[in-house]
């Protein structure tokens, strides 16, 4: 996973709540068996509308998506995270995230930042007024800085450490293979197997 420490970039205001994973990456894109090439599918239905915010040249190259509440609801498809990352996003800011999406993001190094709805709206206003304005997302100090605004956000210590170090979970868990074996030896004999 790509490590995340401090990122500065421009923001795209996505003024919609309940942005579900079927919109982030429609099902037709899920047929690929590789991990790459998903940027073309990002919001592909919405991008057909010339007025959709990502079609505005002013937001080309922006790397922080500022969205409405309940971002990433719906399916567990990690393809949603891959699509956002491959398009160039490093951070999504929203008042609330769906659990699986948030989890998938932190596994991949896309930082989900939860900020109060008023702050999110203010960031959206500012990104609309001045698409060149930069936002800094600082995971070291757990703050977002935008103009004269500095606001802190919550993230648990463990996830923050993993992101800062760019550590992948599987490697970490395999350090505890002995514990897993001990647990396995104590499992109830009636539990089913698939064979």
């Amino acid at each position: 996973m790509e490590a995340f420490t401090i990122h500065t970039g421009r923001a795209v205001p996505l003024r919609r709540s309940n942005v579900d994973t079927d919109q982030i990456i429609p099902a037709v894109w899920l047929k690929q068996v590789s991990r790459t090439g998903f940027e073309k599918g990002l919001f592909s239905a919405w991008r057909e509308d010339p007025d959709f915010v990502l079609n505005n040249p002013a937001y080309q190259g922006a790397s922080i998506l500022v969205a409405g509440s309940d971002f990433g609801t719906g399916s567990s498809r990690e393809h949603a995270v891959w699509a956002l990352q491959q398009y160039g996003f490093r951070v999504v800011i929203a008042p609330k995230f769906a659990d699986i999406f948030r989890n998938n993001s932190t596994k991949m190094g896309l930082l989900p930042v939860i900020l109060p709805a008023e702050v999110v709206e203010r960031l959206q206003d500012e990104a609309e007024q001045d698409p060149t304005a930069e936002i800094t997302v600082d995971l070291v100090d757990r703050v977002v800085r935008a103009g004269d605004l500095t606001v802190s956000f919550d993230i648990d210590d463990y996830t923050r450490w993993r992101l800062l170090e760019g550590l992948d979970d599987t490697g970490l868990t395999l350090r505890h293979a002995d514990d897993i074996e001990v647990y396995e030896n104590g499992r109830q004999p009636w539990l089913p197997t698939t064979v």
Binding site: S76, N103, N104, D168, D169, T170, T173, A177, I180
Partner: peptide, 14 residues
């Protein structure tokens, strides 16, 4: 439900 990174994690570690 889990994402693909977690699928890999479960396959490798249960």
């Amino acid at each position: 439900g889990i994402g693909t990174s977690e699928v890999e994690h479960v396959l490798a570690t249960q």
